[in-house]
Design a protein around this nucleic acid. Structure first.
Lengths: 339, 339
DNA sequence: CTTGCTTACTTAATCGTTTAAGCATATATT
DNA sequence: AATATATGCTTAAACGATTAAGTAAGCAAG
């Protein structure tokens, strides 16, 4: 790469010190009482040489990089992509840049990522934590790194977080299925200890028991690493016997998409034979022969809130933590129509 | 944020100079002839204090940031998300980090992004260029910034690029429709001068004329900014009259998804009444009632190739440019079945 | 004509790291 | 004994920018 133009080059050309150039180009001429003539000259030279400040050097001096680190599970998953996009936009509004990394739901990768981002001197982190990364989060807290957890708060950790009312949303979804006349409602979730998923399970369970159906609980779990096989097995189990499920509630969109693939293969009719509701949005839900009822998370609001809260933490290291909880919306379509 | 541990802190604790600490921690003890005893002591202290090198300072000194910049159109679009993911993984393999930004298919944003990334001293760029950003690319070349163009090469610019055989893939897709007995094949593409789209159009046109159907050309264009409306209008036009289209070829997945939504609304039967083929992959294509035939781009290979080529350019500023062109694969499913 | 205030700059230290060059001291070679 | 070599460390400059503190010249006031 061609050598970049530095303050020194401009200073040389103008016959002055780099300090003066710096004062002018950072608009501190008043304070530094730079001559108008000279200020104009410096600016002209800077323009001519196409000077671009070296952000690294500036950061080193100032201790601020104007960069935030984002850790998601997998940037190729549209849910996280969408989050990343809103964070990017909101960050840009505040003159921040985003560095990201995918943890792949893996604790070790997550730890490496956190370190890599911190070494690059990010001013703060937005983390969608992987299972088992609780200790890493505590560690951030101890080190007084400004950070915000998104999507998956840890109940035992006092940290700022942006999340949705997972239990409530799941409750509404299941209630909706019940009101549609379904009684044997299965749920397929990830096999994980992450709080957002347990909450969704809790909402499901609560709804069933509020309707006197606690005996009808049918939760099946799938491993992130064996998604396809586990889902097929789960659906196989739920649909077999004389009392097959008449509704399925999926805890995330990836579970639903994989599940619907199999349901189509099996020739199960939706919604006549089986109603379907899923957490999260997906383009695939629109194109399914009967558009899928789903729970829409307010992703743009979540992203904006995350960035704003993080910036407050960055600006004020002592800002008390805040757990922001937003509401999700049940979007009802044909896949959960009455029997 | 708590003050970070620096070389100075370690040096102080060990009672030596920072230079010595640096030699040890960068494994240059041999060269610098550091005593074994001392090396061990320094390493122990570093561990105890949990020293993490300041990447910014290192980069400032070395002139290398071990960071590559990625510019996509929109990270929330799964196609770009997928690309970003493979680039991230491949970069990590080589100890590089990725900073990204979404251009929104907008020249001004693209320019701002390029500058923002370069100011942050990225070692190189991978760019999926927006329409009209040709001059920005030329400018990169002039400034000797190492970069690789992905997905959308500019025919008039001598730059390294990774792309696919767009015309060939489109040709195969249309040929496939012709062999399936379709004769009134419409195409819906973006209204853009970007080469990859023109190439797809060229492939379509070529296939028609090779089969003696040049008169049957029906290309409709949609604006990125008015996707929904333009597609509805286009499909409306293609399907009306006594010679409605019996097949549709979509130039990208977002066009297809929007198009299929409307096709479902209109109650048009696929594939009986209308065969459908789309460029690019999508989960939605699997869940469509008749799984959609599509052209699969080799995204993982493209991402890997892009990173590798970029790293070669970074290592050797004089490396001649290379235009790598990969083949895409037509995945045939029911949406394009014989009439 | 000395003191003090402006104005318009420069000097120099600093951020954290790297690395060539220098400087003692000890040991080996002739 | 004089010289060379090896060993183990320190010094200091550099990367590019920021900024407090210093300086020099001009001018006004006492």
């Amino acid at each position: 790469m061609k050598k970049k133009v530095s303050l020194k080059d401009i200073a040389q050309e103008a016959g002055v010190s780099t300090a003066l150039v710096s004062y002018v180009l950072t608009n501190k001429e008043e304070k530094a009482r730079v001559g108008q003539e000279m200020a104009r000259k410096i600016r002209k030279i800077a323009q001519k040489l196409n000077y671009q400040p070296n952000h690294l050097a500036r950061s080193l001096k100032s201790g601020r990089s104007d960069t935030i680190g984002l850790i998601v599970a997998d940037i190729s998953n549209p849910f996280f992509g969408h989050i990343a996009r809103t964070i990017e936009d909101e960050a840009k509004q505040h003159n921040y840049t985003v560095i990201f990394g995918s943890s792949d739901e893996n604790v070790d990768k997550s730890g490496d990522l956190i370190n890599a981002l911190l070494n690059r001197q990010v001013d703060g982190l937005i983390v969608i934590p992987a299972e088992g990364s609780e200790q890493q989060i505590r560690n951030l807290k101890e080190r007084h790194v400004p950070f915000v957890i998104m999507d998956r708060p840890f109940p035992g950790v006092d940290a700022s977080s942006i999340s949705i009312n997972n239990a409530g949303a799941a409750y509404e979804a299941v209630k909706h299925l019940l009101l549609a006349g379904r009684r044997r409602i299965g749920m397929i979730a990830y096999k994980t200890g992450l709080h957002h998923i347990s909450e969704r399970r809790r909402g499901y369970t609560q709804a069933l028991s509020d309707y006197g159906l606690e005996k009808e609980k049918r939760i099946k779990l799938a491993r992130y690493s064996h998604l396809r096989d586990d889902i097929r097995k789960a659906i196989g189990q739920l649909m077999r016997g004389k009392q097959p499920a008449d509704a399925l509630f999926f805890a995330t969109n990836s579970l639903a998409i994989e599940g619907l693939r199999y349901i189509s293969e099996l020739g199960i009719r939706v919604p006549e034979q089986l109603a379907v509701v899923s957490f999260d949005e997906s383009e695939a839900f629109d194109l399914y022969h009967t558009p899928v009822t789903f729970i829409r998370q307010p992703i743009p609001e979540m992203g904006k809130a995350a960035v704003r809260l993080l910036l407050e933490h960055i600006r004020d290291g002592d800002r008390p933590t805040a757990a922001i909880c937003l509401d999700a919306e049940l979007v009802i379509r044909q896949s959960s129509a009455k029997k």
